[in-house]
Design a protein around this nucleic acid. Structure first.
Length: 252
DNA sequence: GCAATTTGACCCCT
DNA sequence: AGGGGTCAAATTGC
């Protein structure tokens, strides 16, 4: 007997597999220039995210949810205790503030927060705590891109030149990507022309699940803007999708 | 008092 | 002109 969750997870895996195969065909035939690979990459990554959400949570959310209930609203000040980024706080943390609080090994200071037109969630801006002291120009942007389970997009910009790493806490063993690490060459050779110092990750936090084992490196975010991301957030196979896949299949 | 966050205002780019 | 990114004064907590 296959549970409903297993069935949905299997669907997501099959979807990801299908897209991966299509992408493989494109790469093998060197036709990545004629057809955008972004929808494929997005779908693959979204499939993984969805399956992980099934694994993580006994009651995974539906594919689609109304974003109207998550419209940006004036955010009341929280006490410093509520702002803590410790595991206990993460377990109970929930609001629109894009604060995944993932421990990436550096100390960050928030310097701004903006409502982004293309997203119902606000985007937070952080810079290295030692930006002035050590002339470190590293910054990062954190934006919540999905509510349930909460998924945050973290975009790192600039390069850490400071020596004051806060160390890595194994209890939050998110994977750290070095700012000057050439990731894309290993994973997606076609992306190597993109500025390597812009590293984007997505970080999911839930109310019930420790953050320590989920952090995915979303390399394709080099090429994906917010509109495209939302447009491809767990969509059911539409006729457009099928046409797209047909188009790819015909390239073979 | 200090450090960190919040948030409205400002600047720059398209 | 509008949107995104940054600044800086005000606020808050320790």
């Amino acid at each position: 007997m296959v549970s409903n969750i297993d069935h949905k997870a299997m669907e997501a895996l099959l979807r990801g597999q299908g897209c991966a195969n299509s992408l493989k065909i494109l790469l093998e035939n060197g036709k990545i220039s004629s057809v955008s690979t972004e929808p494929l990459i997005n779908t693959i990554l979204d499939s993984f995210s969805l399956v992980l959400s099934f694994v993580d949570s006994p009651n995974p959310p539906p594919y689609h949810e109304s974003s109207s209930q998550n419209m940006a609203r004036p955010m009341p000040r929280r006490s410093s205790k509520e702002k803590l980024c410790g595991a206990q706080d993460l377990l109970n943390y929930r609001d629109d503030s894009p604060t995944p609080c993932s421990n990436d090994g550096f100390a960050w200071r928030k310097y701004g927060q903006k409502t982004i037109k293309t997203s119902p969630h606000q985007r937070c801006y952080y810079r290295c705590t030692y930006a002035k002291d050590q002339n470190c120009n590293a910054t990062k942007r954190v934006q919540k891109i999905k509510d349930n389970p909460p998924v945050y997009r973290t975009t790192y910009m600039g390069k850490h030149v400071c020596t004051a790493s806060v160390g890595h806490d194994d209890t939050h063993s998110s994977k750290m990507i070095q700012f000057d690490q050439v990731v894309s060459e290993l994973v997606m050779p076609q992306l190597t022309t993109i500025d390597h110092q812009v590293i984007t990750m997505e970080d999911k936090v839930t109310d019930y699940i420790p953050i320590n084992d989920y952090l995915e490196c979303d390399i394709n975010d080099f090429l994906v803007d917010d509109d495209q991301f939302w447009a491809t957030q767990f969509p059911p196979f539409s006729s457009e999708d099928l046409m797209f896949f047909d188009k790819i299949a015909n390239l073979d």
